[in-house]
């Protein structure tokens, strides 16, 4: 076996040239593109990491805002609940006041109605008492008006003002003299004499009968009424009672 040294030398040179060629045209560009790809991948990873970090921060911010919204909502609900509670209390207070006022008004109204009823009953009792007294007096024997009532009638007539007394029976109007029982001529004369004494002039009254008077006399003119009778007394007593009731009610 022999070695061709020319071939050995040529192959050595060939392999060195091939080493340079592949290093220049294959391995170096491949290594560069691999490094570039790694750099791009690293950049993408960095960007992805940055975006992930940003997303996490945004998520945390959203969580914070959501919590703030929830807190605000809870605070507003509390405020609304407190306001509703205060309004409810105010409404209840107003309603209670209104109920109290209505109760007081109803109470006052009831008291007033009670007083009115008492007054009405009292008035009715008074009227009933008057009627009872009148009926009881009707059972008494007829009393001559001139005997018991004429002096008082004359005195009442004299108590009128002078101008009123002077105007009685003038201007052509005829006075009316009422009596519970018909007067006889002596009685009429006594009445006319008493009127003349009290007024200073003579009248010509129209004598009429009114049982309502029970007993006594009543002179009616357009300007004055003068009476002295049981009915007048009873009416005066009832009027006194009513005045007392009004004063008591006031």
């Amino acid at each position: 076996m022999t070695i061709d040294w020319w071939t050995l030398g040529l192959q050595t040179v060939n392999l060195l040239v091939l080493l340079w060629l592949l290093g220049r045209f294959l391995f170096r560009p491949l290594a560069a593109i691999v490094a570039e790809r790694r750099a791009a991948a690293a950049k993408l990873l960095d960007e992805a990491q940055a975006e992930r970090t940003a997303a996490q921060q945004a998520k945390a911010q959203i969580e914070t805002e959501r919590k703030a919204i929830a807190d605000e909502r809870a605070a507003r609900l509390d405020a609304v609940a407190q306001e509703a509670e205060s309004r409810r209390a105010a409404i209840l207070k107003d309603a209670q006041a209104q109920v109290d006022r209505m109760r007081e008004e109803a109470k006052a109204s009831a008291q007033q109605a009670h007083k009115d009823e008492e007054r009405r009953i009292g008035h009715r009792a008074q009227m009933l008492a008057g009627d009872i007294a009148a009926r009881l007096l009707e059972r008494l024997p007829e009393m001559p008006a001139t005997d018991s009532f004429l002096p008082g009638f004359e005195q009442a007539l004299a108590g009128l003002p002078a101008s009123t007394r002077a105007a009685l029976g003038e201007e052509g109007e005829q006075p009316v003299l009422l009596s519970a029982q018909p007067l006889d001529d002596a009685g009429k004369a006594a009445c006319l004499a008493a009127i003349e004494r009290a007024t200073g002039h003579r009248l010509a009254p129209d004598f009429r009968t009114d049982p309502v008077l029970i007993a006594g006399l009543r002179l009616e003119t357009p300007h004055a009424v003068v009476a002295n009778s049981f009915r007048t007394d009873i009416d005066r007593i009832l009027a006194g009672f009513e005045r007392q009731d009004r004063e008591g009610a006031a």
């Binding site: 061709d4 020319w6 071939t7 040529l10 192959q11 060939n14 392999l15 040239v17 091939l18 060629l21 592949l22 045209f25 294959l26 560009p29 491949l30």
Partner: peptide, 26 residues
């Protein structure tokens, strides 16, 4: 004076092929 043998030629062919492939690829 240099004898060119078959291995040298084969190596040249391989060198050419590899170089051409490398240039076309890269």
């Amino acid at each position: 004076p240099v004898p060119i043998t078959q291995p040298v030629v084969a190596t040249w062919v391989i060198m050419a092929a590899l170089t051409l492939f490398s240039i076309l690829l890269t």
